[in-house]
Amino acid sequence: MTRVGVIGGGQLAWMMAKEAPAQGIILSVQTPSKDDSAVSLAQEVVWAPVDSVEGTEKLAQKCDVITFENEFVDLEGLQVLAKKGVCFRPSLQSLAPLLDKYEQRCFLASLGLPVPQFKNFEKIEDLESFGFPVVLKVRRHGYDGQGTIIVKSPDELDSALKVLGDVPFLIEEFIPFECELAVIAARGVDGTVTNYPVVETYQKNQVCRWTIAPANITIAQVEEVKAIAHKLLSALDYVGVMGIELFLTQDGRILVNETAPRTHNSGHYTLDGCRTSQFALQLRTVTGQAIGDLSFCKQGAVMVNLLGLDFPNPNYEERLTRIASIEDTFVHWYEKSESRPGRKMGHVTVLTNDHTVPKARAIAQHIEAIWYS
C-alpha cells in the first residue's frame, strides 16, 4: 500500500483520510493539536506544528509522498528535505509562486491570465490610483475572510491600516462582480490536466456560505475558466488538486481572484455529488494513479457550510437532525472540539435532478434558515 503524509490535520485532511482506504492508501498527518479532525482517522500522527521542518522530516520517514492541506509551511526549510529526496506533491517549486498572494498575483499576470488591478503596499500614496472601495489583503496566511478588508471610503482607511498593522499586504481594485465562481482542477504525474464543473459560490464577510454546482454560465465562459486552469497548472508543472476562485464581472469578463494549492471548500460537494471526490482525486494524483470518473452522480449539487453559531449553547444536534431529513442530503460534521462564531464546523450537500439556479438557491436558503434560526 502507498503511504501518504499530509501536512495539517484539519477537516481537509480528515476528508482525505476518509477516502484513503478505498484508494489503497495509508495516511498519516502532521499536526500539533490532538483536537484536529483528522487525528481520529490517521494511521499515524506526527505531533508538530505544520511549519516544523523537523516534524515533516519525521513524517517523511513514515511516508512515500507528502502533500498539504494548508499553506502555512516553511517552504525554505522544506527545500532541505527535498534535496535529501523527500517527495512533495505538489512540488515545492510549484508552490513557491503561490503562497505569497502578491507574488501569486504577479505570477498569474506574467502568464497573461486576467486578474484585478493590484499593487504591493509600500506607502500611503500607493492607494491613490485605486479610489474607493478598495481591497486590502495580507500577503501570507489569510483565509476565510481573515486578512482581507474592503475599505469603502477614506474615513475607513486609518482603522483598516491599524488592523493590518505591520503585516505586508497588497492593494486590489474592488470588483463589482455579477457572481463569484470557482473550479477544482487537478494535474497528474503524467501531465494530464482535468477539472470538475465550474461552480458558483456565495460569500458573506469573505467566508463561503454555499456552492451551487454547476454554475449557470455560458459555454464560452466555462471554456475560458477551463483554459485558465489548464494553463496555470501546466505552467507550474503542478501535481495534485488546486482550487481556483474567480469573479464573473457585470460585463461578462472572467477574472482570477486567487488560488489554493490543495483541496478547497468550493469542491466539498464532490464528496457526495461526484463519482470521484476532490479528496480521492488528490490522493490519486499525488500517488500517480489514474484520475478516475469526475462526473456528477445526479444533475447537480448544492453545498452549504455549517458555521459556528454566535449564541451560547447552540443545539447543533437538533439542527443536524432536521437538515439530515431533507431528501438526498448528506451531512458532514467535522467533530471539532471548540465551536466559534463563523468557524467551519461541517457542511451539508444536497443532490438535485431538477437543477436550476432559483431551486438551488432555495435549497441553500432553506438549510441556512434551519441552521441560523
Rank of each mutant, 00 (worst) to 15 (best):
D155A: 15
D272H: 13
R275A: 11
N257K: 08
L236G: 11
E200L: 00
E172Q: 15
R253L: 08
A215F: 06
D158R: 08
I175T: 07
G273L: 13
A186K: 07
L232T: 05
E173L: 10
P168Q: 11
A227N: 12
Y269Q: 08
R209L: 11
Q203S: 09
V198F: 00
Y196T: 03
L157A: 05
F169D: 13
D190C: 01
V167I: 14
N265L: 07
I212L: 14
S159D: 14
T201H: 00
V207H: 01
R253N: 11
Y238N: 08
Y202I: 11
C208E: 06
S266W: 09
K231T: 12
P197I: 01
A213H: 09
E156S: 12
E200V: 03
K231Y: 08
V199H: 01
I212P: 07
E178I: 04
T259L: 15
P176F: 05
G188W: 03
Q250K: 10
V222T: 15
A220M: 07
V207E: 08
E173V: 11
R262I: 09
L248C: 05
I244Q: 07
N205C: 09
H264K: 03
P214L: 03
H264Q: 09
K162S: 11
V183K: 02
A220R: 06
I175L: 04
T218M: 09
L255V: 05
V189W: 02
E178G: 11
I244D: 02
S266I: 10
A213Y: 08
A160G: 13
E224Q: 12
Y238D: 11
E258L: 11
A227S: 13
A229P: 10
G273F: 08
L271K: 12
I219S: 14
G243I: 09
W210V: 05
Y269W: 12
P197K: 00
I175D: 04
V239A: 04
C208N: 01
T211I: 15
V163G: 07
K204F: 10
F174R: 03
R253V: 02
T192Y: 04
D155M: 10
I212Q: 07
P154F: 03
P214M: 02
Y202W: 03
I184V: 13
N195C: 13
A182T: 01
T276W: 07
G188D: 04
I171E: 10
I228A: 13
Q221M: 09
P197R: 00
